[in-house]
Design a protein around this nucleic acid. Sequence first.
DNA 1: TGGGTGACCATAG
DNA 2: ACTATGGCCACCC
Length: 114
Amino acid sequence: MNKKDESFFELVYQVVKLIPEGRITTYGTIAKYLGMARSARMVGWAMNNSHKLQTRIPAHRVVNRNGVLTGKFHFDSLLSMQELLEKEGIKIENDKILNFNNYFWDPFKELKIE
DNA sequence: TGGGTGACCATAG
DNA sequence: ACTATGGCCACCC
């Protein structure tokens, strides 16, 4: 791993790490924030890779634009994505986040103003 | 070198 | 409202 890896994987991780507890955001939002609106898939890819990093990435706080936990099968069966979220006070039903808009974290709004 | 594959999204029918 | 499809681009055979 060289410093070339500051590319976009690192950027994705940077953003994901900024998501506060009890909040969630989407792959597409992150992609857009990084200027790759059409490459939301790459954000998912970054998450897939994130499990092997030593740095802990709160990947459970990233869901798809419908608020569905599409990545839950990539988590430990013991500590499921859903459990992690519920532990942070987020209600989930049928793999879908309830009151999605209440918990949605928008990097544009939250990070823009400084 | 090239083709298949995604933890996605927007659009069209 | 739901399904199908194309685009996207890094990564892995």
